[in-house]
Design a protein around this nucleic acid. Structure first.
Lengths: 139, 139
DNA sequence: TTGTTTGCAAAGGTTTTGCACTCCG
DNA sequence: CGGAGTGCAAAACCTTTGCAAACAA
């Protein structure tokens, strides 16, 4: 939570219970939830929170770099605490999303390669792999 | 257009002027347009077409494998004639999307690596690179 | 002819916005 | 206290759906 509080202060954002709750939920639940899922799961502890506040909070967290927004081809965005750069691998049967952490030099080498071949200054990337997870393969 | 007509027949879909127009537009305009953009650009030649038809057609083309749907983090999907597998590189200043074709063995090696390390059976992927294009760097 | 496709309007789902109230600093 | 954040309801989007008319095969 220290990271959150520091980061909020650095961005001139106030520390509110709603922001703490949402960040805390994401921090402890790496299921890449949608705004709706976050809302449903936190309203038990925080019955007065609104879905609009969840969206507004996610926007603040995203803008200050604490959370990343991902889209795997569904109707809605999903959210993820950004600790270190990583990719996502999606099971097309059960729709679960699993983090995948490639080594740094692997990513750097790909970005360098792309930058060289396209003349873009590449600053970030998103990599999604689709397939079937171990559990779904066995059932 | 031969590809389209053959493919439609193989999928028991009828060849209609609307489908020809939309596929033709995508085939000649590799700007990765949204449904709305497609609609706006083809309605000059086809004044009676509706946006709903554009969506329905894109769904048919997607299901029969002629078109791919991509999402780069905007509110809407964008569409792309799928010729060979490729990645996308997005300029965050001008929002243009450029195709990037890595060598086959490069992709295969990444997918193999991911599959091995995650125990997923990986069937496909989407790779998006974000940065600044040559033109925007020079202005 | 027959089943598919189209076009319209309406509905559905996600996300944003306006505004008064509340609360952090 | 003052300005930022919250919560509600309404609005704004994008996309899908239902249905009668039009059309491809």
């Amino acid at each position: 939570m220290k990271i959150l509080i520091e980061n909020l202060k650095n961005n001139n954002l106030k520390v509110t219970p709603q922001r703490l709750t949402i960040y805390n939920y994401l921090y402890h639940n790496h299921i890449h939830p949608s705004a709706e899922t976050i809302y449903n799961n936190i309203k038990e502890q925080n019955p007065t929170i609104s879905l609009a506040t969840v969206y507004k909070t996610l926007k603040s967290l995203k803008d200050s770099g604490l959370v990343q927004e991902i889209n795997v081809g569904e109707d809605s965005f999903r959210y993820d605490v950004q600790i270190t750069p990583h990719s996502h691998i999606i099971c097309t049967k059960c729709n679960s999303i699993v983090d995948y952490f490639p080594e740094d030099n692997f990513i750097d080498s790909i970005q360098d390669k792309v930058a060289k071949e396209t003349n873009f200054q590449v600053t970030s990337h998103q990599m999604y792999f689709y397939g079937t997870c171990k559990d779904c393969l066995n059932s």
